[in-house]
């Protein structure tokens, strides 16, 4: 297997390059981008991020823990306060709500770290500092015998520079 890098300068060009390579049957594509781009995301079509599930689990845990902890604490040492029932749902809704947000938010970030960073810890030598500034790096994985074809396609897509990534 070989990996090629093409350098582009706008999201628009990058999307066009993705579509061109996809049409030619290359599926293992990746992009280094200095900005978020819905178009690139759409073109690569990876489906919704799994971070969704983390938020949901966090929120549900938070609301459960919130109500349960308060009600259990109230019955652990029952004390009438302000003439209110021990398990005062209206009053407990506040802390339960806050914990829903807290757990949901923390788990969302953990999900981001788990999916976005831990899996991507491999340092790809193709990366270069300009990809966080103003250039778009387009990575194509292909068989060694297709290098010429990919180089050609990347050139047609308007890459400023095309080279083979040295492992």
């Amino acid at each position: 297997m070989a990996e090629l890098l093409g350098v582009l300068s706008t999201p628009h060009e990058t999307v066009a390059a993705i579509e061109r390579l996809q049409k030619a049957g290359f599926k293992k594509l990746d992009v280094y981008s200095p900005v978020q781009s819905h178009e690139i995301e759409h073109a690569l079509d990876r489906g919704p991020s799994r971070v969704r599930a983390w938020t949901l689990i966090g929120g549900l845990t938070g609301v459960t823990v919130g109500y349960a902890a308060q009600i259990l604490a109230a019955y652990d040492w029952p004390m009438v306060i302000g003439g209110k029932p021990f398990a005062s749902i209206p009053a407990y809704t506040i802390v339960a709500f806050e914990l829903t947000i807290l757990f949901g938010g923390v788990l969302t970030v953990l999900g981001l770290v788990a999916h976005g960073f831990l899996g991507a810890s491999r340092q790809n030598p193709a990366y270069r500092p300009a990809f966080s500034q103003d250039e778009f790096g387009f990575l194509v994985e292909c068989h060694s015998d297709q290098i010429g074809r990919v180089q050609e396609l990347l050139g047609e897509a308007g890459c400023k520079e095309v080279r083979v990534v040295e492992g």
Binding site: D30, V31, Y32, S33, P34, Q36, S37, I40, E41, L44, R46, P48, S49, R50, V51, R52, T55, G104, G105, T108, V109, G111, L112, H115, G116, F117, G119, A120, N124, Y127, F131, S132
Partner: peptide, 17 residues
């Protein structure tokens, strides 16, 4: 590194936050 995978999760996380 700004890979498309990272941006995808990042965008979702920002939306949820």
């Amino acid at each position: 590194r700004g890979t498309s995978e990272q941006w995808r999760h990042h965008a979702r996380a920002v939306l949820h936050l």
